[in-house]
Write a protein that binds this DNA or RNA. Sequence first.
DNA 1: CTGAAAGCGCTAACAC
DNA 2: GTGTTAGCGCTTTCAG
Lengths: 362, 362
Amino acid sequence: MTTMKQIAQATGVSVSTVSLVLNNRDKGRVKADIAERVRGQAKSMGYRPNPLARSLRTSRTGILGFISEEVATTPYAGGIIMGAQDAAARLGYMLITVSTDGVADEGRQIAALKRYGVDGFLYAKMYDRVADVPGSLAEPPVVVANASERTGRFPAIAPDEFAIGYDATRRLIDAGCRRIAYIGDKDPILAQGIRFRGYRQALEEAGLGYDPSLTVNVGFNQEAMTGVELMIRSARPDGFFCFNDARAWYVYEAAARRGLTIGRDWSVVGVDNHRVFAETLAPRLTTIALPHYEMGFWAATKLVSLIEKRTPNPAGSSRLGAPPTAHGCGDPGPDTLPTARKGFRRRHLTVTIPASRRIPCM
Amino acid sequence: MTTMKQIAQATGVSVSTVSLVLNNRDKGRVKADIAERVRGQAKSMGYRPNPLARSLRTSRTGILGFISEEVATTPYAGGIIMGAQDAAARLGYMLITVSTDGVADEGRQIAALKRYGVDGFLYAKMYDRVADVPGSLAEPPVVVANASERTGRFPAIAPDEFAIGYDATRRLIDAGCRRIAYIGDKDPILAQGIRFRGYRQALEEAGLGYDPSLTVNVGFNQEAMTGVELMIRSARPDGFFCFNDARAWYVYEAAARRGLTIGRDWSVVGVDNHRVFAETLAPRLTTIALPHYEMGFWAATKLVSLIEKRTPNPAGSSRLGAPPTAHGCGDPGPDTLPTARKGFRRRHLTVTIPASRRIPCM
DNA sequence: CTGAAAGCGCTAACAC
DNA sequence: GTGTTAGCGCTTTCAG
């Protein structure tokens, strides 16, 4: 690892000069030709700043702390981490991930992250809900992912559950379905109720009306299978909006038992948590995948923008530590969701920013 | 954040004394009562060492670098990260995760990790295969997860594919199946061939013999469905060993179409990558979940043991930075797979250590 | 314009 | 036994 000292010696100047030049603070302070010599040496010696040493003075590490619940890390949060990771990398940041399994543990992990001087926190939840950001997360910037935040003091990004329910139902309506069932979750989690409202709204707009007998909220396994069977028998649906992949599975079995084919006899739209359906049955099943990757990407981008806003022209502004692809980091406003990669979706996301404007990104 | 300086001032001693005491190097060097006063102050002021500052002297950061392929982060790698995370946390280490999408990017990410002074690397792969550890990973310790390593120079942990195939088949045999099908993967990936060998071995040991018409290797979607259907019609199996959850799905549909019930008419054992089957259909389906969490846990534990072996009595030995639950870190030999939490499985794992003894952990 | 010097928090020789 | 000193790599006054 080349150090500034080595460059200074090789160029015959002092470390301070090297520091000034390499941080682009040399304008009108260091003669142009000296600056060029320094830069040349730095490049030829392959100099990269040591972010840890730098952090000792600047208290900016270039590290983001990613906090998730233990269970969150698999399988849902994988996408969130990946998105956050991608965004962080292209902005020249690193991601330290911790997972917690309880309140006490969470406190310990947060303390540990602080000791490592993270510049900000990504607070991710396993499923969409109203989250309380721990008090110990007060100081550095915080962005909440896959949850809405109770107080509105922190930026948050979450699935737009209403839009998901609405869109799924609309697609079934557009496909010609007239008796659209909702296979929901027995647990009254946030998404369950809101997707259901989207479902009803779409039905009403289409003049189809809401038939309670077409709705069944189930858990798992045999009980769920039976519930779905009974509903099908009594209400005779021709289309299904399934709360998630597990529920879609029960409809598939019911169809197979009747010798029916999905996509011809019945239409199914399901929210696909595990991506296994989308991957293995794509041609036959219509799925809406939760935008986990996108949430992570947005959250990290937003977090970095907050960090760099706080320290207007940070020490690290030289971006020498950043990958070549790093670009200036504009604030990712709710209407400027970054295009992470092919297929980045803006749909089905809801962004909350502290000004408490809640803007659905459809 | 309390610093040693503050403690020194409050106690009326020098920082060096504080450092000695807080690192438990005071034996026979600092008077016992002074040491006690220092310790008392440290505790009452809530002192925690600043690992970054410490690393400047010791070049030990307490950070592990977790490298995975981009796609790895979801959904499979979630479990590996989680296991590594858990092990790291209880040993007082942090995890920096990076994901890469190509060789060039991998190099950049590794360089970045090195700049952050990680103490070692976890090199994780998305699916079991023979991995080449990049040359740039030469220096700090490296442990490979979810893959075997070509040269045998690095410890590695991978699923014991043979045992998986063997056990799955055995269970079907024990359940009374006589015509056991193998629904494999069309791609000739490592696991595919080795699980198949385990399958054949179990058949032969049971005196059932191998019937090629009971084997079908399929891809996805309609093509897979058709392949499975044809095999079932011509070979009339009564039990199925499915390469993964996607393949199990095709058997389920086939059963449902015939009005058959899994667990009564047919038996199915499948490897469950996504855990969705195990979660939602547990009572009816027998699944073997790949021990992702366990691989991550073992790999991180092994890595830490290598790190601490290199630096016999490291600066961080005070464990002051470690969570209360941290214990001394014994080398996790192949026969001492740590018990991460309830249900930690030793089965279906193969460990390779540089002495190149390859010991299946069954 | 440039360099010397101090210091971030901590560790490790080496004096006393 | 304890304090002094130097220095890890870097930033940031402040002299010159």
